[in-house]
Write a protein that binds this DNA or RNA. Sequence first.
DNA 1: CGTAATCGGGTACGGTGTACCCAGTTCGAT
DNA 2: ATCGAACTGGGTACACCGTACCCGATTACG
Lengths: 270, 270
Amino acid sequence: MTNDGTTAGAASKADGAATGSGDIARSLELLWGTGERPSRGPKPGLSPDRIVTAAVAVADAEGLAAVSMRRLSTELGTGTMSLYRYIPGKAELLDLMLDRVQGEPFAVRPDEPPADWRAAIDRMARGHLDNLRRHPWLLKINQARTVLGPSALRGLELALTGLRGMGLRDPELIGVIITVNSFVEGLARTQADAAEAVAQTGLSDEAFWENQRPYLERAMLSGAYPVMAGMAEDTFSSDFDQFEFGLQRLIAGFDALVGERAAEREAPRT
Amino acid sequence: MTNDGTTAGAASKADGAATGSGDIARSLELLWGTGERPSRGPKPGLSPDRIVTAAVAVADAEGLAAVSMRRLSTELGTGTMSLYRYIPGKAELLDLMLDRVQGEPFAVRPDEPPADWRAAIDRMARGHLDNLRRHPWLLKINQARTVLGPSALRGLELALTGLRGMGLRDPELIGVIITVNSFVEGLARTQADAAEAVAQTGLSDEAFWENQRPYLERAMLSGAYPVMAGMAEDTFSSDFDQFEFGLQRLIAGFDALVGERAAEREAPRT
DNA sequence: CGTAATCGGGTACGGTGTACCCAGTTCGAT
DNA sequence: ATCGAACTGGGTACACCGTACCCGATTACG
């Protein structure tokens, strides 16, 4: 309210996608808000919801870069500036897109809970990965100022519910979630980046590496990289499932801690 | 050579920061290149090296968003278009910035090797984290088409050297590196995003969460999130070191696999 | 010395987010 | 019934961005 214009202008100068740059109170209202119309004035022909839906559709289909105010306005058949009647700015639009899409994986399966915490982690990781594959643009949004909407809270609640059985302290449970999600996001980002690179350059991965081959071979023969030069042919093959490998390692690592804690409870003060 | 303009134009339409979008052969030449001057024409007043140095300086100080061709040209005291005499386009500039900065952590310590693979992973993780903190903009560059320059190869060689002692198969060693790096990048990204959000909005984290508090409290009291509502006060405190926690879990997870493999070698065909 | 090759860089184009402003619409108060 | 406040729609304009295109100045080879 007190702050129009200046800050938003500064925010827009910054990097690619940021969240929560604008009026947070406004974002919160939009997320939890009642949607009550003011009594006076003509009926609005648009709604934040419709704009967010259109934005997510464009982002899914063509990437976050295709989501521009002009593009959305033509998509919705309105003037560009009309969008600003419903959304304070692009930053808030990203906020809303985030919350919309984060709810999806949990809306799908309200069914049976995971058997134990191992299954919960497995499900959490796969769900997160699926969602990131469906909406790769999620990886480009600054989530630091994510406004915690209903969807985000529900996701966190479900995750914590599945992990309670580990018998760890509360901050450690958060640590487990962070560690797993970081790992998943890293892999998802690698894949998304690769796909984007192919789309942008029109050059396949194979062709790209073929271009580098002569330089790499020269480097390997130079003797400066003895370990790499001696590695197996299939080392960088895509046959190896990095997701499964990493996830199993993570679960094993948590298991060790869970075991320690259980032992301590059994025989305290050793 | 055969491909001027059109592809580069298409590439520039895409998202934020991408790498290897341009002429790969040119990028490779710049990375490994001899730097031989052509014989005719006036002496160049600039060099790719100077441009990259300026670009890294600006990115470190003000973020990747501040790195624009116009900005670099004023920084270097030349005309904007002069930069294109030395670098095919912005995509290639990002390539070069990447390789420049990836070499740093290994240039610093050519000294004693780590005691064992555990120490190697620890060192790798901390080195990576330090580097990402020094150059947060690294997290915004699409690395899928990273041109493997000398620095990148040297880093990979050192990492593999430290991990050889684990006794795992070669693709698994890569898996270890990927898993650790994904985790580290996830944490670094969280921190970088937070810092960026503060810089953009001028709003501290505390103030931000304070804004959300009423909505969160209402949600907690609603009974829809019983597990979260019952968590300890310090659950989301920043006192808890997420980096240490996650890293120890990862090492424990790898340890389990290393133990299995050692046992198999001891008593094969059980 | 001519000329081919290279360097420096100005201008222009199509893209972005959005500030600012005005015209048209609708409803509450009088 | 009428007036005006509150609201919606949206056109125009500005400051950025990357870079295609082109021209004049400079240099060294034939």
